[in-house]
């Protein structure tokens, strides 16, 4: 009698559940090995952008091909995947990426942050604190935080190597001189483990403090520019600031109209053609979980039904 081990069972489950004619998680093993090696080096040098040989993906750039390639290289049959775009699980981009991995890797998907082992994201970090053993994969459009100051790659490489970030500081400070405060509210640069200045991807600066000493592993994939970078768990991530202008995050005088949260990132929603507006949580799963627990917001403007925004 041949006993079938648990591993073998899962292996055949893998073959059953994924589409015929596809590699598991779409990428061939050769490509995955190359991305995996780059990912390990990214983890070993926190905040440093490791070049990798990006592959053609069946989605256009801008859909997060870098993040998808990172996810495809790490994901396994036992993972549970959550995908968010602007904080929501139900946008076209998030739904398509989730479907892509459900089809090609046969993985379970979830909208619940705490149930996910891998979270792929564009533009937000979930409000629920991420845990050890979770991995968050960021989709990155422009990985080089110094690019707007220095267009030449050789020069930015040197600046990173020598931690010569004076120009970056000058740039941000000029912003203060003009506007009285740093007006960059997305993609606000951070310094990782006191060395590399890194682009956190276009998340609101509200999310920057979540990156500091995060228990989860943070991986960043840029498809067009073919870069992978990483922040290991429990690593110092500091938003750049100045003694006379400390780093500040966005705050709202309102709370979420639906769940009453006053600690989450809020999106402004126009509710009618007369310009009525309200503020709701950008993280739709966080908001739904709060409402499920009985939290209520101040409510909606008259004649506005909850189903209209869900």
């Amino acid at each position: 009698m041949t006993a079938i081990s648990g591993e073998q069972k899962k292996s055949s489950r893998l073959k059953e559940k994924t589409l015929d004619g596809y590699n598991f998680a779409y990428l061939d093993d050769q490509t995955k090995r190359m991305i995996r090696r780059a990912t390990l080096k990214a983890v070993a040098i926190p905040g440093y952008q490791v070049p990798f040989g990006s592959r053609e993906m069946p989605l256009p750039f801008g859909w997060g091909t870098g993040g998808i390639q990172v996810t495809a290289s790490i994901i396994g049959i036992d993972d549970t995947l959550k995908v968010i775009d602007q904080g929501a699980d139900d946008t076209t981009n998030a739904v398509n990426i989730r479907r892509f991995f459900a089809k090609t890797a046969g993985v379970e998907t979830t909208e619940n942050t705490s149930d996910a082992s891998i979270i792929q994201t564009r533009h937000r970090i979930p409000e629920a604190k991420l845990k050890s053993d979770q991995i968050i994969v960021y989709q990155v459009p422009i990985p080089e935080p110094l690019r707007w100051i220095e267009p030449r790659e050789e020069e930015t490489r040197k600046m990173h190597a020598l931690t010569e970030y004076g120009v970056m500081h000058v740039g941000l400070y000029e912003n203060i001189a003009h506007f009285g405060k740093v007006t960059t509210s997305y993609n606000y640069p951070v310094q990782v483990n006191d060395h590399y200045v890194m682009s956190p991807s276009p998340i609101p600066k509200f999310d920057n403090p979540k990156m500091d000493e995060m228990p989860a592993l943070q991986l960043f994939g840029a498809g067009r520019e073919k870069r992978i970078y990483a922040v290991p768990p429990y690593t110092k991530v500091k938003s750049l600031d100045f003694e006379d202008h400390p780093f500040e995050i966005e705050s709202w005088s309102e709370c979420c109209a639906l769940c009453g949260s006053s600690s989450s990132f809020l999106d402004e929603v126009i509710t009618d053609d007369k310009g009525s507006r309200m503020f709701v949580c950008s993280d739709s799963n966080f908001c739904a979980n709060r409402r499920a627990k009985g939290h209520k917001g101040p409510g909606l403007p008259r004649k506005f039904e909850i189903k209209d925004i869900e």
Partner: peptide, 21 residues
């Protein structure tokens, strides 16, 4: 490996875990 695609993914995640922690 009996099943290289499946097994190398599992081993990789362990390497990733020990390298990141």
């Amino acid at each position: 490996f009996d099943d290289p695609v499946y097994e190398s993914q599992i081993v990789f995640r362990k390497i990733l875990k020990v390298m990141s922690e």
